[in-house]
Design a protein around this nucleic acid. Structure first.
Length: 442
RNA sequence: GGGGGGUUUCCCGAGCGGUCAAAGGGGUCAGACUGUAAAUCUGAUGGCAAUGCCUUCGAAGGUUCGAAUCCUUCACCCCCCA
């Protein structure tokens, strides 16, 4: 996160207790609920407390977490109270749901670092100062950490039939495989999450848990436990797993996940990811990830039909999401870099533009003297990080994919000198259509 | 315990003494067309001081002028009979 803690305004709140299920439903955000019949009505009758959990598997959230986060946010906008739970305890165990092999345990230090990284990100999406439905941020280590093993077995484990646990998808799919197994530790994971739900019910009156479709088993485990332990009926609601039209998990690229932290994925890269989204996916993403209403999304998509070349929905999506995740500042720098890089041939850059670009686009600094004798283009491509070695650079140049300041370089013998500087000290290299890097000669 | 099959370049998968940096496909990358889209077409896809040199075909040795290909040992995987 580049900018401060000002979650974008929730002032445009729909009137309290609008029909949240209907809202999620037209957005395509409901995979299943535990009570299709009554939940919509119940959620209109009073303000609920709703929770979603996030295990600290990395020091940043990524696009894959966005759905659940936006869900919590929408519940808050609809007048409910969201609780974002960081899995300080559950993260120590590892959720087997959706995983096809046993995971390595994280060290306590790593876990803490991950929690520290995720907390402020979670805060961006929710409003912590809006009266009775102000968001709550919690760490389940606070209540799970103090449990003794025997105590847990007596108080919690006694109420959970193993038959039911074995029937859960997350367990069954693992047991059916003969190449991997499942440890007792991971098997127990669902009990911890089940108890989370019970605890949040007792402590905050939380009656609804939301999450991805892979969380269904864990959510229903919590509901069962609450029924046995407290004699109450809790509810669950899952959203679909988000994949792109080509089957790849949304937010995954060749080079890894798209993160929400500016250190891992710069605002520019983040912005670019959405700009480059397939036409086939962009409509869904607008519904999933933005606060835009139905009319507005329909309008943008209609615009796209009549003039696809403008790629209005991708641009709109990129703007909305970059602003939400990186703030106005991050958005501005991403847009500025985009404008310069994807514009025409680059001649003169002013300092303001440079500052914006340098923050975000991969850049390398080289001694100014490098230019005196001339810098072979092959070397420049490698030094900038655009090409992984000289053969690679040769290939790209030969095939016509190398550009300096948006002007194609012809011939692998080309040598760069001061005349190639786009500004005082900077050259803009490009490999292919959209991979940029800056070289600064200081 | 006995018998058989396998391990190949990012992945799948051919090759079974020289013509093998290794077919084919997938992926990836670049180009053309477009729209920083998709589809399609074209090309590239071990490295380097580059018409040559070096490293690669599970690991280590060996045979040979020459080994991914043959032999030996080891490791891992699969199948069949116990």
């Amino acid at each position: 996160m580049t900018t401060k803690n000002n979650p974008s305004p929730l002032s445009s709140l729909p009137s309290p207790l609008s029909d949240i299920i209907a809202e999620l439903s037209w957005r395509g955000l409901i995979n299943q609920t535990t009570d299709d019949e009554n939940l919509p009505r119940l959620l209109r009758e009073k303000s609920w407390t709703v929770y979603a959990g996030f295990d600290p598997t990395a020091d940043s959230l990524h696009v894959g977490h966005l759905m659940a986060l936006m869900n919590l946010r929408r519940f808050q906008q609809a007048g409910h109270r969201p609780i974002a739970v960081v899995g300080g305890a559950t993260g120590m165990i590892g959720d087997p749901s959706g995983k096809n092999e046993e995971r390595n345990l994280l060290s306590i230090e790593d876990l803490q670092a991950n929690i520290d990284g995720m907390m402020p990100q979670l805060q961006r999406f929710l409003d912590f100062d809006c009266g009775p439905n102000s968001a709550v941020l919690a760490n389940n280590y606070q209540w799970l950490g103090r449990f003794g093993y025997l105590e847990f077995l007596r108080d919690i484990g006694k109420h959970v039939p193993v038959g039911v646990m074995l029937a859960k998808d997350s367990v069954r799919s693992r047991l059916e495989r003969d190449d991997v197994g499942m440890s007792y530790t991971e098997f127990s994971y669902m009990l911890l999450q089940a108890y989370d739900f019970v605890h949040l019910y007792e402590r905050f009156g939380c009656e609804l848990q939301v999450g991805g479709s892979d969380q269904w088993g864990n959510i229903t485990a919590g509901i069962d436990l609450a029924r046995r332990l407290c004699g109450v009926q809790l509810y669950g609601c899952t959203c679909p797993l988000l994949t792109r039209s080509d089957g790849v998990k949304m937010g995954k690229t060749e080079s890894g996940a798209i993160w929400l932290s500016a250190e891992r994925t710069s605002p520019y890269q983040f912005h670019q990811y959405w700009i480059n989204l397939d036409d086939a996916d962009v409509g869904r993403c607008l519904r999933f990830f933005t606060d835009l209403g139905k009319e507005e999304i329909d309008a943008v998509m209609a615009d796209h039909e009549s003039d696809p070349g403008r790629r209005a929905p991708q641009r709109r999506l990129a703007v909305e999401l970059t602003r939400l995740v990186h703030g106005e500042e991050g958005l501005r720098s991403a847009q500025q870099a985009t404008e310069v890089l994807f514009g025409a041939e680059i001649h003169d850059l002013d300092d303001a533009q440079l500052a914006g670009i340098f923050a975000d686009v991969p850049s390398k600094e080289l001694p100014r003297a490098t230019l005196d004798g001339g810098l072979p283009i092959i070397e420049a491509m490698v030094k900038s990080g655009l090409c992984k070695n000289k053969s690679d650079a040769r290939r790209i140049i030969t095939q016509g994919g190398a550009y300096v300041n948006n002007r194609r370089i012809e011939g692998i013998e080309a040598v760069l000198d001061k005349s190639h500087l786009a500004g005082e000290t900077t050259m803009i290299l490009r490999a292919g259509k959209k991979k940029y890097a800056l070289l600064r000669f200081a």
